[in-house]
Design a protein around this nucleic acid. Structure first.
Lengths: 199, 199
DNA sequence: CATGTTAGTTATTCATCACTAACTACAACT
DNA sequence: AGTTGTAGTTAGTGATGAATAACTAACATG
């Protein structure tokens, strides 16, 4: 239009990624169009393609960004002195709190459609989940070894149950229009689950 | 083209619904097009609209059909003599076996995309899930009342955990290209979970 | 201040889909 | 056999949405 302040490519890229993440949470990852992203940040639709070659590349960048956010979250959660079970608990609650502030995460993570079209994204998230699983597994093993959890428990299976808890709860939260408090509901369910593991 | 045997509307309708359910499992509910359905059953794409006014109507019919299939499954599972916990176990395993033979079910059930566009479908499936939750809840309550499960357990929460188990496992199964045996893996996880509930 | 670089524009293309219009032919029933 | 209802066809429309072409203007730098 008239005098418009241009921004650096780097700045625009992060704007695009941020806008995509925000909009994905609001209207769903499938509903995203380059037109919508463009409007959100105030440039034209083809302008988007000055910064990303394809729409898929935007999703990849969003995936990377989510990965970094999660990594940062993990770093914050780590309290060295605590019991493994407490670290597990904090981690799960922290994750749910994180989801609550960034609702796009479960939406993107569970979007079969998105993954079907984007091999890279799928493998990336698969890796994220796998690392969570092994992390949980280790913490649970530590609890078993120290005798606070039953020795009969398979740490892998127990870890899957914890992951399923998070995932199931996040999905229920989404379907219920995010109407309940995710972390506190999660804490309640987690207590019930972990209580069953205790020796 | 040449001599083509016409079929009754009723027959075609069920063909369309069956084909949709099958294809949804293979390529994903989002990827479904009327063209694909038409090819699958051997008529032209507009021919579909002789039988359903809109594509949404096809999904509703598919939803109804899934509901009926599940209902039939429930009827089969009901063994009157067994303990509540055994009924619960059978129900979950039966459900997973059912999913294994009809992989479209979790895909459709958890397709945010599909639900966003189809209010009726969303409320329909919400009802299905709610009925499962209350069913599980009742069975768990019976176990608590008979003293076999801990009295401290909230049946609602416990029921949510069971639902999450099914959902999480089904999703993992999908992401892993359906490479493991769903019912047996489910049985293992369920045993671990229910073991924690025992008094 | 002239020049190359690049962020941005408008106009357009191309593909995909749900859905409609207009017509055709099968088959059931008097 | 003629009438009629309806399952089916081919051709087309309109919307949407990713991506390109061609051009323009902001900015840095020698």
């Amino acid at each position: 239009m008239t005098t418009r302040t241009r921004k650096s490519a780097k700045e625009r890229k992060t704007e695009i990624v941020d806008a995509t993440l925000r909009l994905a949470g609001e209207i769903g990852p499938d509903r995203m169009t380059t037109e919508l992203i463009a409007k959100e940040i105030g440039i034209s639709q083809p302008g988007i393609f000055r910064h990303f070659p394809t729409k898929g590349a935007i999703w990849e960048a969003v995936g990377q960004h989510i990965g970094k956010l999660m990594q940062a979250k993990v770093a914050l959660t780590k309290k060295k002195g605590a019991l493994p079970v407490d670290e597990l608990r904090d981690f799960v609650i922290g994750h749910l709190t994180f989801i609550e502030t960034t609702p796009a995460i479960p939406a993107i993570l569970f979007s079969r459609e998105l993954h079907a079209e984007n091999e890279k994204l799928r493998t990336f998230f698969a890796g994220l989940i796998a690392s969570r699983h092994s992390h949980f597994s280790k913490l649970i093993t530590a609890e078993i070894d120290s005798g606070r959890f039953k020795k009969t428990i398979d740490p892998d299976d127990a870890s899957f149950l914890v992951l399923a808890l998070i995932q199931g709860l996040a999905m229920r939260w989404s379907l219920n229009n995010r109407s309940f408090d995710l972390p506190s509901e999660g804490a309640q369910l987690l207590d019930l689950l972990l209580d069953g593991f205790k020796a």
